[in-house]
Write a protein that binds this DNA or RNA. Structure first.
Lengths: 343, 343
DNA sequence: TTGTATGCGTTATCAG
DNA sequence: CTGATAACGCATACAA
């Protein structure tokens, strides 16, 4: 079970370890002859360089790490694909690191930074309960993607790329109002976790206010708890709950597309029609929202552009081109689907 | 930018490095007093242990790595969640490693094995162009999940957990036949890549044969190329192509649920109805197939059970309980949705 | 209870 | 072009 090391290879070839190292790493200062011989021996043996040892020695690696929470969220899929492409084009190595729910993303970042000698970090999604002081310990460039640093709390200096959740939520709820809806339910999380639930709720409230519609607690439907919260199932169950209640609402603002789809299904099963009986809107602009029947009216986040923008910022920082922190806010796009109608 | 090491901490505390090490790792043989003092200093400094150095020293780590190709495939989501839960229950650390499309998964496994001193590996999905000789170089226990080793080629000894794609495809196409369909199109990949395309095509052919239905090339529709192949978009475009053709088919066997959904949407947009004009079936049993309207008739792979079974095998091997290789084949479940009807 | 010294597998810096 | 040898940061056997 003892694994073969560079020393073993050196011995087998009758050369020094540094020569073997040169062969492995395509370094100059080695004759084609010996190189070939060494590579051949390596091929025949079970030798695989130990990355831990490598990382320990190397002062810097051309690698970017992307840290995601909730990797099973399809919203992230196109973003991750974009990262992969972009980073590879720059001839960097791309590491995707999943963050366990209960773990602190900044701690993981700190560990990874030392371990791999990273060039840069992207935080994708996440709740961002991050403390600024801890964030400051990160010594390589990093950027937040799809979330922005909380305002006020002295988080200035934290570059980010995001969409203004409150504003976009306002936009889509306002759209519902413009269609004549006056009784609009919201399916969301009522936990004040500074996460998407909070901002989207704020947008909802503001839109109602602007349209002179009173806000009622009874129109707020709390989604499932836990990691199923933003799933189709969650929307489905919540809609069933709503349908059983005395709700007189004519429209539903679901906190994301998956929830909207679950709601549509529940409404369908109850013998009602979308948008005939209920207009339903989502948020995010997942692919599936275009293929669903009815297609879902939603706010599309320009994910590819956001991904590119995040990496551009990151590489600028890496290259020391600009040290000013940027906080790019992308506009969301209201996509009018078949799930809404005017009344 | 020089980062602080264990030595620095030792110096700052006026103790030896081993004492600091003991404090960090909760090892015995240290007074509560000094431990507390050390931890406090660490807290205040920017010290983060370097994992590369740790891995280099440690002989074994309690960690399981899961290697996935195409992490953006929602089919894998519940499996990964299950892995995470299971592995954490065993008090092991869970590492999810994404494999770039162009990379060889076995090479990655080999590297990772040395680097992290893994206890075990799970290969999730993937094409498995793996060569047996290379696979043999892996010296820790591993198991394939959702794919089985290719038959014949002396791959005996490679434990796996999977569903019999050919048999299950047969089952669902046979079901279509039993509904009276005689002209059944298949949306798949015609590349002979030993991947899902091939086996599902075989099942399709066998089902036709059993039902005395002739096989026509013209009923085979090739999906998009590249990594969009198995997406909704791919099914959508392929269905449009089919609708424009002279096809007289009354049913479509889509190679997976996403493709089926794309096809349903295209049919809908063309003014036709599922299942009125076309019956559509998928494969996999994604959550969305239950929430789609119409819900999709599909073969559900028992993903949670498969995930658990794979890890059970792995842990048995790790504990040396059973060295016999197991190849568990789970039955798929025919789920009859609203997307099919008898004619 | 604590500190010192050694080695993990590499790469990099030197002489040769 | 090549080969010793010194780090890299940590854990551990051993000595104190």
């Amino acid at each position: 079970m003892k694994s073969v090391t560079i020393k073993d290879i050196a011995k087998m070839c009758g050369v020094g370890v540094s020569t073997v190292s040169r062969a492995i790493n395509d370094k100059p200062g080695i004759s084609a002859e010996t190189k070939e011989k060494i590579l051949k021996v390596i091929e025949e043996s079970n030798y695989v360089p130990n990355n831990s040892a490598r990382n320990l020695k190397r002062s810097e690696n051309e690698i970017i790490a992307v840290l995601v929470q909730g990797i099973n969220n399809s919203f992230f899929n196109p973003i991750i694909s974009e990262f992969e492409k972009f980073i590879q084009e720059k001839n960097y190595t791309f590491i995707l690191q999943q963050i366990d729910e209960y773990k602190d993303e900044v701690s993981v970042a700190l560990e990874l930074e030392k371990e791999k000698k990273l060039k840069g970090i992207v935080f994708l999604g996440g709740m961002f309960h991050k403390s600024k002081t801890k964030l400051d310990k990160i010594s390589v460039p990093f950027v937040l993607c799809t979330v922005s640093a909380p305002e006020g709390k002295n988080f200035r200096g934290v570059p980010s790329v995001s969409v203004d959740d409150e504003k976009e939520s306002f936009k889509i709820v306002d759209y519902l109002c413009s269609l004549g809806h006056k009784n609009i339910a919201i399916f969301s999380s009522t936990e004040v976790d500074e996460g998407i639930g909070y901002h989207r709720m704020q947008g909802y409230k503001k839109a109602l206010k602007k349209n002179n519609i009173a806000y009622f607690n009874t129109n707020v439907y709390n989604l499932l708890d836990g990691n199923e919260r933003y799933s189709e199932k969650s929307g489905y169950i919540t809609a069933k709950k709503m349908l059983k209640s005395e709700s007189k609402c004519t429209a539903i603002f679901a906190v994301n597309d998956s929830v909207a789809i679950g709601a549509c299904r529940a409404i369908y099963e109850a013998g009602f029609n979308v948008p005939g009986d209920y207009s339903v809107v989502g948020y995010d602009g997942l692919d599936i929202s275009r293929y669903y029947i009815p297609s879902i009216t939603t706010i599309r986040q320009p994910v590819e552009e956001m991904a590119k923008a995040a990496l551009k910022i990151l590489f600028k920082m890496i290259n020391g081109e600009e040290s000013i922190n940027q906080n790019i806010i992308f506009p969301g796009q209201l996509i009018i689907g078949e799930s809404t109608r005017s009344i």
